[in-house]
Design a binder for these strands. Structure first.
Lengths: 137, 137
DNA sequence: CTTGTCACGTTATTTAATTACATATTTGCG
DNA sequence: CGCAAATATGTAATTAAATAACGTGACAAG
């Protein structure tokens, strides 16, 4: 186990490292095809190379998938491992993504699920709007 | 304005009605392409016919889009109009979708947005798991 | 009448994701 | 070591999701 709470191998494979590198480098979320384009020089040829790496990275908790964007971001929130109730604030102007973990929110969601007899596996919580900076401008 | 609080014309166009009909009829969410297939007999030929109708229906508040499924459901929750903070519980076994509006949840989301200086436009809240029935089985 | 708007139809294209199949690489173990 | 199982990779083809581009028809407002 690494120093930030994720369950993953000490070393990523070459492809996984390359994809992780692009995501870590990027300011915002990237689509699988954007990642593919950026890794052409590194020898990437097919979407599947990206998707396979992404699958693993998501599994390891190093990357999140943003459903409302069909895109992926590196996890900036060490400790979110095992917590599938992270929320995202996505700025529609600058593309910035902020990751949020909130006890009260989680609690309410769990409560609602419980009341409905619903067994919660995963929550997709994506807030779209304008970040503070863009809203001010 | 109709009797259930949505802003939309008294009459939908033919295409809009057909698409709305399929969604109302269906037990669960349908993808645009599934709708297309089901409307072949009614003369539908191209995806755009479905997407155009869906765009309007979503705009009218009659239909919701489920981002995590790339699918659409008829709104079962009269009065959700103008409220873009509806949550969905999606059963991964039977496909059933339950629409939830919760004050406390909304409040917490608004609070979190406010604290971050984030101007919230739309919230995507999708809970994946097992409904009561399927969990029991 | 004619202009603007809105819905519609059709074809092609882009973007997203998966299926299928072959090959390599690593890992654990006898 | 030698080998089998699991894991990772490469490539091509295909399905699924969504949009772009272009033209036509209906119709209300001026």
């Amino acid at each position: 186990m690494s120093d930030h709470g994720h369950h993953h191998p000490a070393d990523l494979t070459r492809n996984q490292s390359l994809v992780m590198g692009e995501l870590t480098n990027a300011k915002g979320p990237l689509s699988a095809y954007t990642i593919l384009d950026r890794l052409r020089d590194a020898g990437f040829r097919a979407p599947l190379q990206v998707y396979r790496a992404l699958d693993k990275l998501v599994e390891f908790g190093l990357v999140h998938r943003l459903e409302s964007l069909n895109a992926f971001v590196a996890c900036r929130h060490p400790g979110c491992d095992g917590d599938d109730k992270v929320a995202f604030m996505i700025c529609e102007k600058c593309g910035q993504v902020r990751e949020i973990a909130d006890e009260a929110l989680d609690g309410r969601l769990s409560q609602l699920a419980k009341e409905a007899g619903f067994v919660l596996k995963k929550a997709t919580l994506e807030l779209r709007g304008l970040c503070q900076t863009c809203a001010a401008a």
